[in-house]
Write a protein that binds this DNA or RNA. Structure first.
Lengths: 159, 159
DNA sequence: CTATTTTGCTTCGACTATCTAAGTAACATC
DNA sequence: GATGTTACTTAGATAGTCGAAGCAAAATAG
């Protein structure tokens, strides 16, 4: 097996680890993976609109509406009509939402961070360079990613 | 921003690129991402049982049954009762299933492979070492991954 | 060699996620 | 102030998912 295949296998392992992790993460918070991801996005932004969420997650506005409905019903977030542009709705996390995020055992990310930070300086540099290289090879340039390791639910393309 | 964050962002870009890619891939084959993943698993194994598929995909047997039902209805796979153990059902791809897989434009993987193979020897080595390192940091050791770059649908944990 | 347990799969019922299309309200423009 | 655009919601449809319950075949116990 050549190096290309080996690298693909390693990539796939990474994807799979994060996939399975995403599910556990959400379950522990009492949410589904996708709902949890919405909560994360809201939390990162502090305050964001449905459109922002839909763009970041790569789903339609309608889907965001339904996800936010569920989070509202569970008291995790609130809708607030924007004062500046009354078409917009700001989604903000509640105290309960904040707690759910805090409670989520981000075991995978923590393990990763711990191990990463234990590496030698040169190895950290190598990993950063390699990951960025791979990311650009996959042509993910546009992506406005944040340092939250979560699959964002690599989900079913139903509909 | 420190290197840990930078590496997490790069990872997230990688995840997101493959996620979006997985959807396109499946759509081009006229299937959903999850159905496509089942077809891939069947194809890799040549011939496999529902339990094997459910384990590899990390979903329940019930889910596999419903997915296989859909693929059977579309003529992509067939069920064959095992001779050795008549409880088991082997899922095998049909000619149509094989064609669907072949037709899928694995653009992302091809781009990756092309770029990877264009790299200098030392850089290939570095990437392989780094990816394997990251995979092991995420503790994905058990995973029996194959060199198919696809998210396997990082899906919704509903239910 | 029957009775019991385990295994492999399917069925059932319920829920989430997702989409498109259509609807409503607010802003923008001319 | 009519027309268009933007932001979001609603409605209706389909896919994916699970747990529990069912059924048939194999394995195990006595």
């Amino acid at each position: 097996m050549d190096r290309t295949d080996i690298s693909l296998i390693a990539l796939r392992r990474i994807l799979r680890a994060t996939e399975l992790y995403g599910r556990e993460l959400a379950q522990a918070a009492g949410l589904t993976a996708v709902q949890f991801r919405v909560l994360q996005v809201v939390s990162e932004r502090g305050n964001c609109t449905a459109t922002e969420i839909s763009q970041r997650m790569g789903v339609s506005q309608a889907t965001v509406t339904s996800l936010v409905d569920k989070l509202v019903r569970q008291g995790m977030v609130e809708r607030q009509r924007s004062e500046k542009d009354r078409r917009q709705t700001h989604i903000v996390k509640t105290e309960k939402g904040r707690a759910a995020l805090a409670r989520a055992p981000d075991a995978l990310q923590q393990r990763y961070v711990r191990k990463f930070e234990a590496l030698e300086d040169w190895e950290q540099s190598m990993l950063v360079a390699s990951l960025e290289r791979v990311a650009s090879m996959l042509d993910a340039e546009d992506i406005d990613a944040s340092p939250v390791l979560d699959t964002g639910d690599f989900t079913t393309s139903a509909g």
